[in-house]
């Protein structure tokens, strides 16, 4: 399989590469248009801050390319949020692939939402073999509310989008690359789409 990870200096690229390596899969890290366009599947990782991530994407014109992709695409954590339209983080316009808003947690619970939380309402082949209430690892301060595109939710303290799907664009707010065997299964499921 020709698997490409979008290279825009995102923080957790190495972790994603290692997670794939543990599954015996080699991936190419690239920001090159032709390489990304010709991939069978694309993974879009991300940690950090929305406006600086968008600046990195724009510096490589990837903000033009990514919305045009048609192969199965998987955004992880900030990589999920960047697919949306707008984020309260730095009042940032995002890629606008999925027509959703990214909001900051307004709660008296601790923010960042950090640690292992449970997946519910699993509604996608992405979660094949994953049981309801399975634990996955989160670390984030901004979230996407539940919507028509939500394919799994978690609760903190209100339900929010744990994962999204719009056409070929799949995305997870949690970190499958850091979520033990369940996370590996979710990555495998994406690769099998």
């Amino acid at each position: 399989m020709n698997l490409v990870i979008v290279d825009y200096k995102a923080g957790n690229v190495q972790s994603v590469l290692f997670a794939l390596e543990r599954l015996g899969i080699q991936a190419k890290l690239s920001a090159d248009f032709e390489t990304i366009k010709s991939a069978d599947k694309v993974i879009f990782p991300g940690v950090g801050e929305a406006s600086s991530a968008m600046a990195q994407l724009k510096a490589r014109n990837l903000d033009k390319l990514l919305p045009t992709l048609e192969q199965p695409f998987f955004g992880v954590c900030l990589g999920m949020q960047l697919l949306c339209k707008h984020s309260e983080e730095g009042d940032t316009d995002l890629l606008g692939i999925i027509p959703l808003q990214v909001k900051r947690f307004q709660t008296n619970l601790k923010v960042p939402h950090m640690g292992w939380n449970q997946l519910e309402n699993l509604q996608s082949p992405l979660f094949e073999g994953i049981k309801e209430q399975e634990y996955v690892y989160y670390v984030h301060s901004y979230y996407v509310p539940n919507s028509d595109y939500t394919i799994a939710q978690s609760v903190y303290p209100e339900p929010f989008s744990a994962a999204l799907q719009y056409k070929n664009f799949y995305a997870a707010q949690f970190h499958p690359e850091k979520s033990g065997p369940a996370g590996s299964q979710i990555i495998k499921n994406f690769l099998a789409l």
Binding site: Q14, A19, E177, S179, P181, G183
Partner: peptide, 10 residues
């Protein structure tokens, strides 16, 4: 690097 390569928790 070696730890990150081998473990799947944070």
């Amino acid at each position: 690097r070696d730890i990150a390569r081998h473990i799947d928790i944070p």
